[in-house]
Nucleic acid binder design. Sequence first.
RNA 1: CGGGGCGUGGCGCAGCCUGGUAGCGCAUCUGCUUUGGGAGCAGAGGGUCGCGUGUUCGAAUCACGCCGCCCCGACCA
Length: 441
Amino acid sequence: MRLSHYFLPVLKETPAEAQIVSHRLMLRAGLIRQEAAGIYAWLPLGIRVLNKIKAIVHEEMNRAGAIEILMPTLQSAELWRESGRYDDYGKEMLRIKDRHDRDLLYGPTNEEMVTEIFRAYVRSYKQLPLNLYHTQWKFRDEVRPRFGVMRGREFLMKDAYSFDIDARAARRAYNRMYVAYLRTFARMGLKSIPMRAEAGPIGGDLSHEFIVLAETGESQVYCHKDLLDMPIPNEDTDFHGDLESIVRARTELYAATEDVHDSARFEKEVPPEKRLSARGIEVGQVFYFGTKYSAPMKAVVTGPDGKEVPVEMGSYGIGVSRLVGAIIEACHDDAGIIWPVSVAPFRVALINLKSGDVATDKACESLYSRLTTAGIETLYDDTDERPGAKFATADLIGIPYQLVVGPRGLSAGNVEIKVRATGAKHEMPADAAVEYLVQGN
RNA sequence: CGGGGCGUGGCGCAGCCUGGUAGCGCAUCUGCUUUGGGAGCAGAGGGUCGCGUGUUCGAAUCACGCCGCCCCGACCA
């Protein structure tokens, strides 16, 4: 992409309304624009990141055996009356009437609807286990939205729903999602820690929140330090097999958010030098809630014994739009964002230090063509800004590699690669630079 | 939902107290000079001062109402 033909509205000054660093950087780097309290438009750079995150989430969901569907944003109130949540959910739920005066709502979550889909088609235990997921915009009418996309009213969320014949099978389904989440967040460059959590209004009695440590995190968390150094399950993990050992290795160590924290237990179970108390951002949550929805909504299957039983369910959320903010909280410096390669909007920022200079232009065009041909997403700064402005923009938007081309380097036969994360600079001939950047893609 | 604050060119702000020609920096446009870490000079364009009502000869400025947004708390992915 040539910057001269792109839409990248970066701000030199910090917008007054943004308090936390991720919100400020998202506005400055031209990722989002606020359209109303807690409601954002996604600008070109922002939607690229959002899509990358979503793709990783989907890959790991599919790997774990979940199946993608897409449910609508608007739902009929009827479904929610069946589960009893139409009255329970309160003012957080955005209620709408259509032209026929029918009650609709903008979905804050989809347990009811997915249960309705399930019960319409599934009758036998032989069709289980089943896990259906989708990524869709949700709306929760927060009293006080804040922190940009970290706590917006409209947000993009992946939610998966598991259906099983009994509690044991449901537990295995829970474990599959638990392991998939460990992999998902690790792939985005985040260190996530599963912590015991309250089930909240979703309901249920087994739940973990996946927490990313960050100074600006919304909740206080307590855990055993060894959880920070747990290995990430491999890509070839057998999701049909027994995952209990992977889960148990983590759940047997103390980890809890402030809501369920028990300081006496914490001090008893964790030696002083292993105690970690920090702030954290919740990026995902897994629930097992049994028959909370299947029983009232009559989602039943016939078991091997010929008896009908309500299906055992769990739900598994990942805050996709929130993750953009969470990643920035974890990955930035004074100059701007530092995207992990896996979610970066572009892999390489090609910086022409002297647009209009024949030799420099020619070298850049050649590099741009070779990189894009090799499948490297490259943002080519071909504008006639001054070098300082180009460097500042590249640092701000956080592209992992800056490929810097100017007359001075070229006269020595070199271009320069700057690694955004470390600041390390390497001078080398153009051929070597292309090879360096193509590696590992 | 309680408490506090703010709405003035695209962005950041001053002006308001004490009513009288709407201002500054950045950005934008034109020209010249510059070009390896957010350039310099000269010129130009752009604002019903959130909306409404009232007070007044006269309202960005005073009063009242409304709307929007932000912050603290309670609540939450």
